[in-house]
Simulated assay, not measured.
Amino acid sequence: MAQQIYVNLAVRDLSKSKAFYQAIGATLNPQFSDDTTACMVISDTIYVMLMTPEKWAVFTKKPLVNAHEASEVMLALSCDDRASVDRMTDTAGEYGGKADVNAKHDLGFMYGRSFEDPDGHIWETVFMDMSQFPTAASSDA
Score class of each variant (00 low, 15 high):
128 M>L: 04
83 A>F: 07
86 D>C: 09
137 A>W: 15
67 A>Q: 03
45 T>M: 05
141 A>I: 15
56 W>V: 02
28 L>K: 00
24 I>H: 00
35 D>Q: 08
53 P>V: 12
4 Q>R: 15
139 S>C: 14
64 L>A: 02
77 L>F: 15
33 S>C: 04
128 M>N: 12
55 K>M: 11
20 F>T: 00
138 S>R: 13
40 M>V: 05
111 Y>L: 00
74 M>T: 06
138 S>N: 14
93 G>M: 01
88 M>N: 04
35 D>V: 03
127 F>M: 08
98 K>Y: 05
134 P>Y: 06
80 D>F: 07
66 N>W: 11
95 Y>T: 10
122 I>C: 07
71 S>L: 15
14 L>M: 07
114 S>P: 03
129 D>C: 00
88 M>S: 09
136 A>D: 10
39 C>I: 06
25 G>I: 06
97 G>M: 00
83 A>E: 15
91 T>N: 10
61 K>E: 09
101 V>T: 04
105 H>T: 08
8 N>R: 09
20 F>Y: 04
14 L>H: 01
24 I>W: 01
9 L>W: 00
91 T>A: 05
42 I>T: 09
125 T>H: 03
93 G>Y: 03
101 V>H: 02
83 A>L: 14
44 D>N: 11
68 H>I: 09
51 M>A: 12
102 N>I: 14
23 A>I: 00
52 T>K: 07
121 H>S: 08
45 T>V: 11
140 D>Y: 12
137 A>P: 08
23 A>N: 06
23 A>E: 05
115 F>T: 01
79 C>G: 09
86 D>H: 08
90 D>S: 13
140 D>M: 14
16 K>N: 01
83 A>W: 10
86 D>Q: 13
83 A>V: 11
27 T>N: 03
17 S>C: 05
100 D>Q: 02
79 C>P: 05
141 A>K: 15
57 A>N: 03
82 R>G: 00
109 F>L: 04
92 A>V: 04
116 E>N: 08
98 K>Q: 11
102 N>G: 09
14 L>E: 00
114 S>Y: 03
